[in-house]
Write a protein that binds this DNA or RNA. Structure first.
Length: 169
DNA sequence: CATCCAGTATATA
DNA sequence: TATATACTGGATG
């Protein structure tokens, strides 16, 4: 996928689970990365360069903390989903409707976007989700109860689910 | 129970 | 154009 988005700021978000990195474009929050490894190349994150981004970041931080504390998210900053196809945006839209602690299967998700046979494609769409946690891609399970996979590492998916469901399985 | 296969949207080589 | 995916349900051995 070609993210032609222009990231104007990368700001670290400190949480009890680590240092996430929020990427902002002119339109809003464009991407969120899990702590460590992957984006260890965070070349000196541009500091907050405008009041608007500062405001968005405040919302992002709050939302992330709430999500990681198993609380309902009060507000989200505008999301810049420019990089997604229509199909992917539909999938992400459905994901955002999944309430705290609830899970869904890839196939049901496929049904909800009008393509009951596209469970596999749904998996790809989830993987393309630029904003994990806030767009709960971790609440999607395979129909047989398996976790499937997760971009940020299966350990995260498990951790998040355990956190939300109290006890997984 | 282990494989295989088609159907589907995207990405990558 | 071919292959590989965060899949699934059905067919086959």
């Amino acid at each position: 996928m070609s993210r032609t988005q222009k990231i104007v700021a990368r700001v670290p978000v400190k949480t009890e689970h680590g240092n996430f990195i929020a990427h902002y474009s002119e339109a809003g929050l464009a991407q969120l990365d899990f702590p460590s490894s992957r984006s260890a190349k965070q070349s000196t994150p541009d500091s907050v360069s405008s009041a608007q981004i500062g405001k968005w970041h405040k919302q992002t931080s709050a939302a992330l903390e709430q999500a990681l504390a198993n609380k309902s998210i009060a507000a989200l900053p505008p999301l810049d989903l420019e990089g997604g196809t229509e199909f992917q945006r539909k999938v992400w839209g459905v994901l955002r409707k999944i309430t705290n602690g609830r899970t869904i299967t890839y196939s049901e998700l496929a049904v909800r976007v009008g393509k009951p046979k596209a469970a596999r494609a749904v998996g790809s769409a989830c993987g393309a989700n630029p904003i994990p946690v806030l767009i709960p891609c971790h609440r999607v399970l395979a129909s047989n109860g398996k976790l499937g996979g997760f971009s940020g590492g299966l350990d995260w998916k498990e951790r998040l689910l355990t956190l939300e469901k109290g006890t997984l399985l």
